[in-house]
């Protein structure tokens, strides 16, 4: 059974300690709910998990093996949803999705693309160019991307932003099915998204002042 684990993680952004000594464990089928006020490091933690950022100290390991030792292997097993939806205005909805599917899965499959669009109820928009999509529709398209090509680890940064109730329900459903199939999910959220039986990580327990002291740069 795969396990994704972080230990004693410290993240420093712009000489400010965002969090320190943070640890988590994700087992197959598990979920991590990241909570905390703005600027508490939810996005930073997800970017650390994705390998976009390097921790100032601490370790991230998949099945006991540091993710740095095999960056491409780590990329192959994760899906990341950030603040931006990566929708090309010149491509249709189906083309946008087909590109990301092909990049992740290394081939093309019209049925997988179709099914993923269906999962977020945007199949009827398949031939519409990306430039005509609303913010919510773009987000649905971005979420359809992670459903299309399976990967065991989902890293979702405020995935419910801009979504209506129907889409939030579809997202919750997608996460539940992903976990039922042995997948893991780390989700940052303020409110509105219900992830069952998730382990909650409260960020923001490290105020900036203490952070500076910890880094040895604060001397009152």
């Amino acid at each position: 059974m795969p396990q994704f684990r972080g230990q004693e993680l410290t993240c420093i952004r712009g000489e400010r300690v965002v969090f320190a000594g943070l640890g988590f464990t994700l087992d197959a089928g598990g979920a991590l709910l990241l909570k905390g006020p703005n600027g508490s490091g939810k996005s930073s933690l997800l970017r650390l998990m994705a390998g976009l950022l390097r921790p100032a100290s601490g370790a991230l390991a998949w099945d006991g093996e540091a993710i740095w030792s095999d960056p491409d292997g780590h990329c192959r097993r994760l899906h990341y949803v950030g603040h931006l939806d990566a929708v090309k205005p010149a491509f249709t909805v189906a083309e946008n999705l087909a590109f990301w599917f092909g990049l992740q899965a290394g081939g093309s499959s019209a049925s997988a693309v179709e099914a993923a669009l269906e999962a977020f109820a945007i199949a009827h928009l398949a031939d519409l160019p990306g430039r005509y999509l609303s913010a919510g529709q773009k987000r649905r398209l971005n979420l359809a991307r992670i459903v299309a090509a399976p990967a065991p680890l989902w890293l979702l940064d405020e995935p419910a932003t801009g979504l209506d109730e129907d889409a939030v329900a579809r997202l919750e459903d997608a996460i539940a099915r992903h976990r039922a199939g042995g997948g893991m999910a780390a989700v940052s959220t303020h409110a509105g998204l219900d992830v069952e039986a998730a382990e909650v990580v409260e960020l923001g327990r490290f105020p900036a002042k203490d952070g500076f002291a910890a880094a040895g740069e604060w001397e009152p």
Binding site: L52, D72, G82, L84, A86, K88, W100, L103
Partner: peptide, 11 residues
């Protein structure tokens, strides 16, 4: 538009 992040994370 955020595509670069996803390209970096591509396998």
């Amino acid at each position: 538009d955020g595509s670069l992040e996803l390209l970096v994370l591509a396998p």
